[in-house]
Design a protein around this nucleic acid. Structure first.
Lengths: 152, 152
DNA sequence: TTATTTTTTTAGCCTAATCTAAAAATATTC
DNA sequence: GAATATTTTTAGATTAGGCTAAAAAAATAA
């Protein structure tokens, strides 16, 4: 009855993502995007079935129950919000941002997610402020590059 | 030779924090702040010892090696940066922010940490912009409160 | 339709991280 | 300094999440 683990959240999210791309999700697809072996997917799916979050008959497709889909969507929203913030506001390299968003997406609550999304939109709506923010970063970079040039 | 798990990072960070508060860290202290039982601390400490990150003689105090302290400081910096950002920029309740920072602190790299810190400082340095950001949030809140008053 | 390939499942093993119960060491109190 | 209390350690169990190897089912090709 406790909280769903972040691993199981990952499986739900992956089912949602695969469904969006290929209509239906299979064990193989989940194994690929989560980078685990098929038997690992199998046992995770069984757990999620017991929890009433996915449906799956043997050798068949995997689908989300309404409750499972709700959770999957929450995780996915957090993922998108964080990725967007990292890339667009903080200027993190998209590949590196992806890994970091995947890590963080299990830790934030809905209040925080909304605030982060609002912050991304704040900068998107106010190009002058976005510019000031970039200038602020550039100045700091310069400061760090001066200071300690060569070896002692 | 792979990466340190986030659990083991937590132990290193906790040793650092306890040392700051009480000069020396003991099993009991770590068990308390990490909310686990003493035998759990014991086996974690043994692993960290094998990895050359802590020093500990039986029934004695626990201390960080230089390498362990370096990692502990990195984790702690990420923790502080995230907590500050959540509370001061996003306005998250400090208690809730703590739990979320503890979750996220294992996922971000140094580039991201610096950027988040810079963003907190950007708002701290520019009170007019901070005000605009708060206004932006307030307006969104109003929009959400209007829209869909009662039940259909 | 039979043979081959692919996918999924089962069975069994492993590691990390936790726990409880009890033993051992250390610290405190009388 | 002996008795008591606290802390740490050991021993052994449990759970989550991963793996490999092999069996079973389904899909594809001949």
């Amino acid at each position: 009855m406790g909280e769903l683990s972040s691993k199981l959240e990952d499986y739900l999210e992956a089912i949602l993502v695969v469904q969006q791309e290929k209509k239906v999700a299979r064990v193989k697809d989940l194994a690929e995007i989560l980078m685990v072996r098929p038997p690992t997917v199998n046992s995770a799916i069984k757990k999620l079935e017991r929890l009433g979050l996915v449906e799956h008959q043997n050798y068949g497709y995997i689908s989300l129950t309404p409750k499972g889909e709700e959770i999957a969507r929450c995780v996915y929203e957090r993922h998108k919000t964080l990725l967007d913030f990292l890339v667009r506001v903080l200027g993190v390299d998209p590949k590196k941002a992806l890994a970091q968003a995947c890590g963080m997406e299990h830790s934030i609550n809905e209040f925080t997610r909304k605030k982060i999304q609002a912050l991304s939109e704040f900068f998107a709506c106010k190009p002058e402020i976005l510019k000031l923010w970039h200038q602020f970063c550039d100045e700091r970079k310069k400061e760090n590059n001066s200071g300690g040039g060569g070896k002692s």
